[in-house]
Structures are given as C-alpha cells and as structure tokens.
Design a protein around this nucleic acid. Structure first.
Length: 785
DNA sequence: AAAAAAG
C-alpha cells in the first residue's frame, strides 16, 4: 500500500504542478518553455515564470561541477556512484538502467524547459550574460546540460553504450587500482588497529542492549562551562576560498564563483561561527519543563520524566559518572532491570551514558573536555575547539587517499566535531554527536565510516554482489543525496562504492547497483525498508549504521521504520546518531540499539551565534502577503519556510506573479522537480525558494543570507534547523519570522527554548524595517517594540 | 503539518 500521496485518489492538495490537470510525467513533458508552471501560457513580463525572452538568453550560464557534485548528480538516480572521470565505470551502471530511460527522459525534459526559463531571466543581467557566453560558449554548454539533469546524466546517454562490455569486468577492473593503493597506504595502520577495532562483532555482541538514558536526565541541570571557547574562524580553512562569493559579487559571481560553489557542499563545516552554549544552562531548567508541556514540545518530555526520574537519580547517578566509579557501576544493580543481556554486561549498558567519559578517546591531554549537558537529556563530552586545532585528519587515523579526498572536499583539517567523534567511531564505539548546523557533521561520521569499512575489508577483494557494510539514513531524500555527495568521493578514493536508496524514483537502478554490490548505502527509511522487504537489500552485513538528524529520525513517523531497519543490521553493529538538536528524543533508539554510547558536542557551539541575526516581525495578518513580497524582492538568496505544502506552493506562485522568480520545494512535487528546484537555488538560477520543513534540516546551500519564516515553527528545534540554513560558512545571515500579535507569547517561549535572542518589532506594510531587511535601504531604523 | 514506499 503506497503511502505516497501522489497516487490517484490522493488528497486534495495533492498535485500542484497540475495546474495542468492530472499530473503525469507525460504531461509534464508537454509543458512548454513558454508556459508557466501555473498553467498560464505566455509571458507577462520579464521575470515572470512564464516569461520567455528569447532563445538567445535561453542558455543560462552554467557552472561546472566539481567531482563532488558530479558524484551527487550521478547518484541522483540511485545508482552506484562513479566519478565522472571514470566514465568506463559509469557506463556500466547506465546500461541496466536504460530500461528506465523512457520514463526518466520524460521527466527530465519538462524539467529542462523549466530550468531554462529562470536562466533566461538571469540572462538579462548584463554582467553575467556577457561573461558567460564568451567564456563558456560551446564548451560549457554541454557541461551545463549535465548539471541540470542530474538524473539523466548517467542513464540517458546512449553514447556510452560502449561501456557495456566493461561492465562485467568492472568490479575487477575499474577499481582494481584503487583498492590496491589504499591498502598499501594503510597496511601499517590497519594492521595495528584492526584487530582491536574492526567490526568483529564479538565484543559488541556481548554488549548488553538497552542502555538507559534516564540517568542522563539528571545532568541536564549541570551547567555548561562558560569557559567554552567559540570556534575560531581561523580554524576553518575553507573559508578562505570563499571570499569571492560574497553577495555583492553575485553578478560577477556567476562565473568565477560558481565553480567554487561546487566545493561548498563539503564546506558545511565552515559554518561554525562562534556559538556558546553557555547560555543554556542559565535558561533555567525549570522553566523549560513547563513550557515544554505544550503539545508540540512533547519531545522534551522532560516534564514527565523529570518529575519521576530526577529526584531519585540525581544523587545516585552523578557520582557514577566519574571515572573511578566505573568499576563499581558494573556491579550496580539499579539498572539491571532493563538489562536483557546476560551477565554483568547488562549493568554496564546501563551506564552507557555516563561512562563515555572514560572511554572517549578524544579527551586526552590533547583534548580538553568536560562534561556537560545541553538542554535536557544528553550528557555530552564537550570538546574544546582549541584543543583540536592542531589535529590533522592523518593524525586521526585516516589513510592517504581519504585525507586527499577530504582536502578535495575542502576539508583540509578537521573541525572540532570531527576531531571529537572520529576517534571513537574508528574504535567502533556507538556515538551520539551534537554539532551545530553546518558544523561538519557529515564528514564527522562519513570519513570514519569509510575508513572503518575499508579496514574491515582490508585484503579482501570486493566481490560482485557483496552486501553493503554501512548504512546512512536521513529524513529527506534531498539530504540523503547531499550526504552522498560528500561521502561518495571519500569512499571512491579508496575504491568503495556508495549508492542512494530513496523513494520517489524508480527502484530499478538502485536494485541494479545493489545486485552488483555496494559497500555503503545512503537513503531514506521508506525505500530502504521496502527493498529489504522485497528481498532486494540485505542488511545483515551492515556493521555501521548512521542516523543523520537522529532526533528527527526518532519522531513519530520515522521511529518505527527506523527501528525495524536497524534490527536487520548485523548483530552488534555500530550505531551513530548525529544532529544539531540531539536530545532525549533519541532515547527510544538509544535504549534498544546503542551500547555504551559516547556523547559529544563542541564546546562553545551554539546556534545563537553572532553570524545570524534573528528578527521577529509582528504583523497584521492582512499585511502578510504584501510584506512577504517586499521581503523577498531583494538581492541575495532567500529561503522562505511555510508550514504546509499548499501554502508553500501558493507563496511561490504569488512571488512569481509579482515578478520575483521563485520555486517551491515540498512533498507534493515529484522527486525530479524537488531535486531540480533545490538545485536552482543552489546554482543561483533562482533567488527565492519557498519550502516546507522538508528543507529545514541538513540542506546546505552556501549563500542563503535571508531565511523567512512565513509561518512560525511550532518547535524550537524546527526554528534552529530552519535558521541553520543561513549563516553558513561563517557568513552572516538573517532570520525573519512573521507572526501575528496573538502568537507573541508562544514565539517568546519558543525563542527562549531555542536560546535565541530576537527583537520583536511591530511592522506594517511599507515600514522601513522591511526595506532594511530586504537590503534595499540601509537604515538604522530602531526597533519599535 | 510534514516527511517517508510502489514494480
């Protein structure tokens, strides 16, 4: 039973594209360039969705993709990853998929035409149009076409058919070199480490499951060390590369910058401006519970729990956390009830959350760290940014190839969260990590995951049809795709394959890739479980499972599928949970799947950093549309969040009607369109993207400088994630939230919980504040409320 | 409310 809403008979708000009528790929294809997505044909004026200036401007300047992006594109259709340079390899994959082409090609076409339009509008821009053409003219175009059609690139090229023959050899041939290489580099290391670290389940198997989180609650009260230093921009190597991209450059940017942009994905880590958690503790623990009682905040469950658990535990548990206590704890019986595992191991599991201190390799003389608690729940190992400043990826245990791949991704030196979590992950420990949005979490789990898989296969030949060894799950397809763009180059550097397994696209390619054998799969729960149930995906060899946006994956609709999937993984498989808002919500998974997890976070990391300015505009509901128009009509990339798909779609159309080119991103769009629309914002072909919370987490677009919340979020975590879409790479960004007077109180409480300070301003149509926020008029307008 | 599953 398809849960997908698209199928016939779905809900009313279903298909938005069909302003054409029933939506089908076929019809999509019929849409003409001159038609607007709203079904209205013809142009109204430049800048309108339906505007069609002329063929000359049709060709929008395209930037070239770097290896990473290409990889992402190649994977867009869920096939095995191949870097573009390795055509032979790629070609293989294409073959089988050809069957899919018919269907796909349709989808893509409409897409293309659509894409071109925006481009045209840009073409009008003096600066760009000229530069682009002269420079790119012919050569680039072909390249461009690639970019636009991520999906197609592989499957659609008939020319590559020649690859067919090779396909069979592929496993042996194409990668033959690499594996060899990588091995060579590591021998020394691998030998030493492997014995201990490898995934030899044995040790893990013994581990009891069901560690209790309860104890952690108590820690909530502990305050964070104020001493936590903030990240220093200097530490971020990548930033240096970006200078060119400043917003002002945009026109010029088109060319030069774009290419670089490609690197961005890798840079997410750069975003870490200084953030201090220091405030949190202050945030009165007390208040929160109450506030949390609100339905929406259910996560924080703290209230409920706190009452029952805290009293008892508080005194008892804390002592336990100290190193010395460890031995004792094992014998402690208080937790044994939960222990299902045999023997004393059960008790040990119960100490999981507290014992990480003793085990965490990160905290050594080199890494000053201290225990702390963020909000409710997780006691984390706070790693000092300075302490790891000198560490290099090689120091952390990566081989030459991986280090090189990381450098190519723009990660020349590990960021704090990476330096903190990589060692324990390589040791095979279960890890929970909290890192600010854009702090480099993907590499933090991705690189060691690749290294671990490599070590586990050292000396072995990668066989055809081998089952995957590692699994990474994300809440949205876009995020899964993005993660693969980062992981794939790293994996490929050592001869490992990754593949995307997510819904919305034909499963043919994905299954085909699995049949050939992949090492790492990255995807969303639905399709993964689907393929498992179909017997097309074997998770029994999964030794490492990662949940990105871990807290979100523990929410209502995700938890159960995720649990079922994790149960299919190898006994004792290592589990990693990452998120910018890791909290007690993950207890459901931690209890069942993690053993003695180490919890990490970076000291001084706080979402409320100096790079993001938060503003709350208190408006009259009747002014909302107009104010949004004014805010969005600006230079610079703007991401608008709406609560529902229908509203997101409506706003996109509204902006378009006002001559502000905008596209939407939400679950009612087909995957091709989703991917395309997001790419449009990334590439700069469109400046405004209106999205639902599908884009709230993880999505990295480097230069969004304004995030507008047309609908205020209900949860503080949502606020943090949405606002985390800007201010990335250490840049400045602004988050504007529109609310009506009635919502003031709720908003105040939410911000309080998010630990974000934002002024509330009463705003009406035409006020200076709007002009200021839109960057049209540099004013010093005072805050009016 | 949204997201995540059709061949």
């Amino acid at each position: 039973m398809p849960k997908n809403k698209k199928p016939a008979g779905g809900r009313p708000a279903k298909n938005f594209e069909p302003r054409y009528g029933a939506k089908t790929s076929y019809q999509d294809r019929k849409r003409r360039p001159g038609e607007s997505s709203t079904g209205q044909v013809g142009s109204r004026s430049a800048g309108h969705r339906g505007h069609r200036p002329g063929e000359t401007t049709d060709a929008a300047p395209k930037r070239r993709w770097n290896a990473q992006e290409r990889a992402g594109r190649d994977e867009a259709r869920g096939i095995r990853t191949h870097s573009r340079d390795e055509r032979p390899a790629r070609s293989f994959d294409d073959r089988p998929r050809r069957d899919d082409r018919p269907a796909r090609s349709y989808d893509d076409r409409p897409a293309r035409s659509y894409d071109d339009r925006p481009a045209r509008s840009y073409g009008d821009r003096p600066a760009r149009s000229n530069d682009d053409r002269s420079a790119r003219s012919y050569g680039d175009r072909p390249a461009r076409s690639y970019d636009d059609r991520p999906a197609r690139s592989n499957g659609d090229r008939p020319a590559r058919s020649f690859d067919g023959p090779r396909r069979d050899d592929r496993s042996a041939r194409s990668y033959g070199d690499r594996p060899a290489r990588s091995y060579d580099d590591r021998p020394a290391r691998s030998n030493g480490d492997r014995p201990a670290r490898s995934f030899d389940g044995p040790r893990r198997d013994d581990r009891p499951r069901g560690a209790h989180l309860d104890r952690v609650d108590r820690n909530d009260r502990r305050s964070f060390g104020d001493a936590r230093p903030s990240f220093r921009p200097d530490d971020r190597p990548r930033r240096d590369d970006r200078p060119a991209r400043s917003q002002g450059d945009r026109p010029a940017r088109s060319y030069e910058d774009r290419p670089r942009r490609d690197d961005r994905p890798a840079r997410p880590q750069g975003d870490r401006p200084a953030r201090s958690y220091s405030d949190r503790p202050a945030r009165s623990y007390e208040d929160r519970p109450r506030r949390d009682d609100r339905p929406a905040r259910s996560y924080d469950d703290r209230p409920a729990r706190s009452q029952g658990d805290r009293p008892a535990r508080s005194s008892a548990d804390r002592p336990a956390r100290s190193y010395e206590d460890r031995p004792r704890r094992e014998g402690t019986a208080n937790r044994s009830d939960s222990a299902h595992a045999p023997g004393g191991s059960a008790q040990r599991a119960s100490d999981a959350w507290t014992r990480h201190r003793e085990n965490a390799p990160v905290r050594t003389a080199a890494h000053e760290a201290h225990v702390d608690v963020v909000h409710d729940r997780l006691q984390a190992e706070a790693v000092q940014a300075e302490a790891v400043a000198e560490t290099s990826f090689a120091d952390l245990g990566f081989g030459e190839n991986i280090v090189r791949a990381l450098v190519d991704l723009g990660a020349s030196a590990p960021f704090p969260i990476q330096a903190a979590t990589i060692p324990p992950i390589l040791e095979g420990k279960d890890v929970l990590a909290r890192g600010r949005t854009g702090s480099g979490k993907t590499i933090a789990f991705g690189a060691p995951l690749v290294e671990s898989v490599l070590r586990s296969q050292a000396g072995q030949r990668r066989e055809f049809g081998r089952s995957p060894k590692a699994l990474i799950m994300a809440p949205t397809r876009e995020l899964a795709l993005q993660i693969d763009r980062t992981i794939q180059p790293i994996a490929r550097s050592v001869g490992l394959f990754t593949t995307q397994i997510y819904g919305g696209v034909p499963q043919g390619r994905q299954v085909g890739a699995l049949r050939k054998g992949v090492d790492i799969i990255i995807g969303t729960p639905g399709r993964i479980e689907d393929l498992v149930n179909q017997g097309k995906l074997d998770l029994s060899d999964i030794r490492i499972a990662v949940l990105d946006e871990g807290d979100h994956m523990c929410e209502l609709g995700f938890l159960e599928p995720v649990q079922r999937i994790l149960r299919h993984t190898a006994e004792g498989s290592q589990k990693l949970l990452f998120s910018a808002t890791l909290d007690r919500e993950v207890a459901a998974l931690v209890d069942e799947f993690l053993v003695e997890p180490a919890v990490y976070e970076v000291a001084g990391e706080d979402q409320d950093s100096g790079t993001i300015e938060h503003r709350v505009l208190v408006i009259e509901h009747r002014d909302k549309a107009e104010i949004l128009d004014s805010l969005v009509d600006r230079e610079g990339k703007t991401l608008v969040f709406a609560r529902t798909r229908a509203y997101a779609e409506m706003l996109a159309e509204q902006f378009d009607d006002r001559g502000i080119h905008a596209v939407a991103l939400h679950g009612d769009l087909n995957q091709a369109k989703r991917t395309r629309n997001l790419e449009k914002l990334t590439s700069g072909r469109v400046q405004v993207l209106v999205a639902t919370d599908v884009a709230a987490r993880g999505i990295h677009v480097d230069d969004i400088d304004l995030v507008i919340q047309a609908d205020a979020p209900d949860e503080y975590k949502t606020y943090l994630h949405r606002s985390g879409r800007t201010g990335r790479a250490g840049r400045s960004g602004t988050v504007v939230t529109l609310i009506t007077r009635q919502r003031k109180r709720r908003m105040t409480e939410l911000l309080d919980r998010a630990e974000i300070h934002a002024p509330f301003e009463d705003v009406a149509v035409g006020d200076d504040v709007i002009e200021e926020l839109a960057g049209r008029v540099p004013t010093n307008s005072e805050i009016t409320a």
